[in-house]
Simulated scan of single mutants.
Amino acid sequence: MQLNHYLLIRHTPNGRKYPYLDCWGLVIEFYRRELGTELDECTDFSIKDGYEKEKNSFREIPPDETAFGDVIAFFRHGMIFHVAVFLGKGEMLHTGLNRHARAEKVRSLQFAEIRFFRHASR
């Protein structure tokens, strides 16, 4: 994996064209490039819409079973608001509003519940 490819991503709301991606767009790019899996781009949809369209393709896994490429989903009040990709060694790759893509330690975002998911292709 070439991390520099992802660090060029510039957060763009509902972005689906590299390097202008939102957090779901980053997951789509990562799955296509690193895992050879095409996810629904959900153009012009929010992260919630993308999650709803793809959720049957993913199964929830316990945090201690996470592996490279698993999706980390962040929820508030039962609603998804952010996703990231698990890189291993406790790190995630993500992008967010007014922030470029970055790799950092998996941590809870304020008042968030974290859940981990693995795609059916893995």
Score class of each variant (00 low, 15 high):
Glu54Tyr: 03
Glu54Gly: 01
Glu54Leu: 14
Glu54Met: 15
Lys55Leu: 12
Lys55Val: 14
Asn56Arg: 12
Asn56Thr: 13
Asn56Gln: 13
Ser57Gln: 14
Ser57Tyr: 06
Phe58His: 10
Arg59Thr: 14
Arg59Gly: 11
Glu60Leu: 14
Glu60Pro: 08
Ile61Met: 00
Ile61Thr: 01
Ile61Trp: 06
Pro62Val: 08
Pro62Gly: 00
Pro62Lys: 11
Pro63Ser: 14
Asp64His: 14
Asp64Val: 13
Glu65His: 14
Glu65Leu: 11
Glu65Met: 12
Thr66Phe: 08
Thr66Pro: 00
Ala67Lys: 14
Ala67Tyr: 08
Ala67Trp: 05
Ala67Gly: 09
Gly69Glu: 08
Val71Cys: 12
Ala73Tyr: 04
Ala73Met: 11
Phe74Arg: 03
Phe74Ala: 01
Phe74Thr: 03
Phe75Tyr: 15
Arg76Asp: 06
His77Gly: 15
His77Glu: 15
His77Val: 09
Gly78Cys: 13
Ile80Phe: 01
Ile80Glu: 01
Phe81Arg: 07
Phe81Thr: 02
Phe81Lys: 06
His82Cys: 04
His82Ala: 05
His82Asn: 05
Val83Ala: 07
Val83Met: 08
Ala84His: 02
Ala84Val: 05
Ala84Lys: 02
Ala84Arg: 05
Val85Pro: 00
Val85His: 03
Val85Cys: 10
Phe86His: 11
Phe86Asp: 04
Phe86Pro: 04
Leu87Val: 06
Leu87Pro: 02
Leu87Thr: 02
Leu87Glu: 11
Leu87Trp: 01
Gly88Asp: 12
Gly88Cys: 11
Lys89Phe: 09
Gly90His: 08
Gly90Leu: 10
Gly90Thr: 05
Glu91Tyr: 12
Met92Tyr: 02
Met92His: 06
Leu93Ala: 07
Leu93Gln: 02
Leu93Met: 13
His94Thr: 08
His94Met: 02
His94Leu: 06
Thr95Arg: 00
Thr95Glu: 04
Gly96Asp: 03
Asn98Phe: 13
Asn98Ala: 13
Arg99Asp: 04
His100Asn: 12
Arg102Gln: 15
Ala103Pro: 02
Ala103Val: 15
Ala103Leu: 10
Glu104Arg: 07
Glu104Ala: 11
Glu104Val: 07
Glu104Pro: 03
Lys105Met: 00
Val106Met: 09
Val106Ile: 15
Val106His: 00
Arg107Phe: 04
Arg107Gly: 12
Arg107His: 14
Arg107Leu: 10
Arg107Pro: 01
Ser108Ile: 00
Ser108Thr: 08
Ser108Glu: 13
Ser108Trp: 05
Ser108Asp: 10
Ser108Cys: 03
Leu109Ile: 11
Phe111Val: 00
Phe111Met: 09
Phe111Gln: 13
Ala112Trp: 00
Ala112Lys: 03
Ala112Val: 01
Ala112Gln: 02
Ile114Val: 15
Ile114Tyr: 04
Arg115Ala: 05
Arg115Met: 02
Phe116Lys: 01
Phe116Leu: 08
Phe117Gln: 00
Phe117Tyr: 15
Arg118Asn: 04
Arg118Trp: 03
Arg118Leu: 08
Arg118Asp: 09
His119Ile: 02
His119Asp: 07
His119Ser: 05
Ala120Gln: 15
Ala120Tyr: 06
Ala120Val: 09
